[in-house]
Design a protein around this nucleic acid. Sequence first.
DNA 1: CAATGTACCATTTGTAGTAAGGGTGCAAGT
DNA 2: ACTTGCACCCTTACTACAAATGGTACATTG
Lengths: 125, 125
Amino acid sequence: MQISINIDDPVPLFSQLMTQIKAAVVDGHLNAGDALPSIRQLATDLQVNNKTVAKAYQLLERDSIIQTKGYRGTYIHPCAKENCGVDLSEEITRTLTNTIAELKDAGATDSEIRIAFGNVMNNRI
Amino acid sequence: MQISINIDDPVPLFSQLMTQIKAAVVDGHLNAGDALPSIRQLATDLQVNNKTVAKAYQLLERDSIIQTKGYRGTYIHPCAKENCGVDLSEEITRTLTNTIAELKDAGATDSEIRIAFGNVMNNRI
DNA sequence: CAATGTACCATTTGTAGTAAGGGTGCAAGT
DNA sequence: ACTTGCACCCTTACTACAAATGGTACATTG
């Protein structure tokens, strides 16, 4: 598995990581059950912080692309290939687009929507 | 009509203005058809910028609390009293609360929701 | 003990948005 | 001429957040 990180790329490092691991899965370079390097290992190899790799791994696990087994390491999820097609962030964008369109139709200002959004996200309702 | 602005109040000036005008409407101090001071006039009286008053007036007109008739001045909307009960910002908050709850149930991260929201609001879809 | 994922503390940098102010100009009606 | 609302320009604070980094510590298993 070859992973390369480009610091000059405006795409966040953790996002580059996720993209490349997903790509390796769909290409077949990584298959169900394959072991991934540990967080510390990969972070050292790529010269990035542990937490950057940890973040990518966390999101990949949430998307069921990988499986972390605690002290036993991290492996490719049995259903990784199928789950690569499911892009949660696209779903989020679609849902929000619809909701925001509704609000604007109702006469809401961009600013008002932003303020209300901030309040909801911070539980200051 | 008495309007007082408190600069030390964390509530934005334009928001204080809106609140007080609405209050005057429900109290009966301002009735349908009554004339409001012009933007420049009120701004001078309260020692605030024209644009601050203009912003309050714009939002009040959108909420059908007042009616601006161009060069002829600004007046209380015929249905002002009824429309004071309709708080659009509450509606916005309710709608967003529901949508965001759905997204979180689906496994979305706060950060992801924020990013997606920002993209949608800026048409960078 | 070594390695694993994970959780917490913290910081810095850059970006984006609100709120408010200052200014200048324009079309429309009196 | 004068006033009206409204449209742009630009600037200043302030706040919130993302991204990344640093360090320390934990329980677990081999």
